[in-house]
């Protein structure tokens, strides 16, 4: 859309051209979301906004709208409301976006979502009435034309949101991914948040290729809180491989340091050694607008990781 106004603080900050950071919150099977509130408080100082995930890996978790709202209300940290098309048809998506607009949500990340067969309610009927590109189309209709996909008008008020989409730097064949992102941008995305990258050259290439669309890019990074997470990521997150050296140093920290505090210190050092130069290089030599830092439950890293970039 290009000329859609910046409704969210995140979009406004992106437009200033300042290199920025976003964080990530992952509500799970919970009624008491104080843990999410604490995480949001811990990262508030360092990030412009935080994504709130919507049942990742096909899991049945608390609806992300309420945590998205509560984090904004209680913590004062802007959220990016993640929505998948896996569980809602166009009627429900429309209704949820209206509801989100009612409570002041300003960013939505339109996702396909992992298939329900992968989650913990594997026999659920998957919806996929719209795909994520068609969802962006619905959002454009709502935001730019004040209607649903059929032209039925929104009666009172306006949906004022900026639309994020995802892109996968690990996808192969890459051209298919790049073209797909282009198709989505053309339908009305405001900015791109990528999945996690670990290979600097790959990440740089990917950003370079995406930059043809003139759509701001936040590169996804995933700091590794411990060896367990790192090896899980390496083994089970498809298409992502954690660099061998990084895995090795995390493993040796786990084995050789018994004291938890000391071990955490070492793990932080390992992460900083890897990610600080990574971010510096992205900032220096690519047009990326910033970093989407998925340090879920690892908020203590924000301070040392981002201090040189603020």
């Amino acid at each position: 859309m290009g000329n859609r106004p910046a409704f969210s603080n995140l979009m406004k900050e992106i437009k200033t051209g300042k290199f920025l950071f976003t964080g990530e919150l992952e509500p799970t099977k919970m009624v008491d979301i104080s843990e999410i509130i604490h995480s949001a408080e811990a990262m508030k100082e360092y990030v412009v906004a935080a994504n709130v995930t919507d049942g990742p890996q096909g899991m049945a978790y608390v609806n992300s709208l309420i945590p998205s709202y509560l984090v904004q209300e209680k913590v004062g940290l802007e959220t990016v409301y993640q929505m998948t098309v896996r569980d809602r048809n166009r009627i429900a998506l429309f209704g949820d976006i209206l509801a989100a607009a009612c409570v002041g949500i300003k960013n939505v990340l339109a996702l396909t979502g992992d298939h329900s067969a992968l989650g913990d309610n594997p026999g659920a009927k998957p919806v996929f009435d719209l795909d994520s590109t068609q969802f962006v189309y619905l959002l454009s209709k709502m935001i730019d034309e004040n209607t649903d996909v059929y032209g039925n008008e929104i009666e009172t008020g306006k949906v004022e949101m900026n639309v994020a989409i995802a892109a996968n730097p690990n996808a192969s064949p890459r051209e298919a991914e790049i073209l797909k992102v282009g198709r989505k941008v053309a339908v009305g995305a405001d900015y791109i948040q990528t999945q996690t990258a670990f290979d600097i050259d790959d990440a740089k290439d990917f950003i370079k290729e995406l930059s043809r669309y003139n759509c701001p890019i936040l590169l996804g990074l995933f700091p590794l809180k411990n060896y367990g997470i790192a090896s899980y990521f390496d083994k089970y997150i498809p298409g992502v491989s954690v660099p061998k050296d990084l895995l090795k140093s995390l493993k040796s920290a786990k084995k050789s340091i018994k004291d938890k505090k000391e071990r955490n210190k070492k793990v932080d050092e390992i992460n900083l050694e890897f990610f600080v130069p990574f971010i510096r290089e992205i900032k220096k030599s690519t047009p990326a607008a910033g970093i989407h830092c998925m340090a879920v439950h690892y908020e203590r890293l924000f301070e040392p990781l981002l201090k040189d970039f603020r």
């Binding site: 396909t112 996929f128 795909d131 994520s132 995802a166 996968n168 996808a171 298919a176 797909k180 498809p238």
Partner: peptide, 17 residues
């Protein structure tokens, strides 16, 4: 997923999640 504008982010080297 019956997508009309794929692929989704779940494909790896041409195989489905």
């Amino acid at each position: 997923k019956g997508l009309h504008n794929g692929p989704c982010g779940g494909q790896v080297d041409g195989f489905c999640e």
